[in-house]
């Protein structure tokens, strides 16, 4: 590296000054809390911070490894992510292709994609909880009146069905986010490529398979990473849709950790839980990034 001139140095000091407030806030809100959680996960203290800290080593992690409750929450989280993200991807690609066409009423289509994205996840969950209501919900009204079912269906009250319902809600809300990222990728594809394809007499399907899909690899991976990360840390969806029930079959890691910390005041073992969750999310990002590198 060439030596810095006086001007370079001044530019770096000014630039540092511009960046510093942002770094400080991020350190306070994001970095410091994670470090504290790591420290607390190896010790014993309390949430109010009055009891002195006592180092206990891996005790909390050993407890977690032996807890059926934890393995259940981890399983729920992984099933939820594996069950929702692929559907979101397929629907997202479809929506992006639609949005990329020119047609009248484009603005309505854009809103149809944006509204689910813009809704608060917590209130969206409540909205669906009402539609899933087994006594008065609109879904049961329809299936009963059209005789698709003879008795009311307990959409959120039966284990497998509750997870399926939760996945439906997530897919409805977040496919549009996938669509927006993939749309950005679509718009970056030069039109000449398609013109060449037309000259060769490609059908729409071959055009999509041979031109569009390969060029969308990067945006699709970015979308997959972001959505999988979100799915692995899902919190307010089960919090408001099912409360984690029935019998913990929709209790995600985030919800379980939250209950341990704030309902049962297990500050330290709760911290160990969030560290484990952090590692799960981190591991998934690494897997995706390795996959991305490989394909390049």
């Amino acid at each position: 590296m060439p030596a810095m001139t006086v001007l370079d140095r001044r530019r770096h000091w000014t630039g540092g000054g511009f960046v510093l407030p942002t770094i400080l806030l991020i350190a306070l809100v994001l970095i410091y809390p994670v470090l504290v959680s790591v420290v607390q996960s190896f010790g014993q203290s309390d949430l109010g911070g009055t009891a002195p800290y006592r180092f206990v080593g891996l005790q909390h992690y050993i407890e977690i490894a032996g807890s059926a409750h934890f393995w259940n929450a981890l399983g729920v989280t992984l099933i939820f992510a594996a069950g929702s993200v692929p559907f979101e991807l397929v629907i997202g690609i479809g929506l992006a292709l639609l949005m990329n066409e020119s047609f009248r009423g484009k603005s309505i289509a854009r809103l149809a994609v944006l509204f689910p994205w813009a809704l608060p996840t917590a209130l969206n969950a409540l909205m669906w909880r009402w539609m899933f209501n087994s006594d008065y919900g609109v879904f049961n009204a329809v299936v009963l009146q059209t005789h698709l079912a003879s008795r009311p269906i307990d959409w959120l009250g039966e284990p497998t069905l509750a997870m399926t319902s939760m996945i439906v809600v997530a897919v409805w809300k977040t496919s549009s986010f996938m669509a927006l990222i993939i749309l950005a990728g679509l718009q970056a594809i030069p039109g000449e490529l398609y013109e060449a394809g037309r000259m060769d007499g490609m059908t729409r399907w071959t055009e999509f398979r041979e031109i569009t899909l390969p060029l969308l690899r990067a945006p699709i991976l970015v979308a997959l990473i972001l959505r999988s990360m979100d799915a692995l840390r899902t919190f307010e969806l089960p919090f408001n849709l099912t409360g984690g029930g029935p019998i913990d079959t929709t209790e995600s890691l985030s919800l379980y950790a939250y209950k341990e910390i704030f309902a049962y005041l297990k500050f330290n073992s709760g911290s160990a839980l969030v560290v484990v969750q952090f590692l799960v999310v981190f591991a998934m990002s690494v897997i995706y990034i390795i996959a991305l590198r490989r394909r390049d």
């Binding site: 809100v29 809390p33 994670v34 840390r233 969030v274």
Partner: peptide
């Protein structure tokens, strides 16, 4: 990288802080 932290992992420390 820090924007990928799960929000729940921030809760105990931010609350105490």
């Amino acid at each position: 990288a820090v924007s990928m932290f799960p929000p729940v992992s921030l809760l105990p420390a931010i609350f105490q802080n």
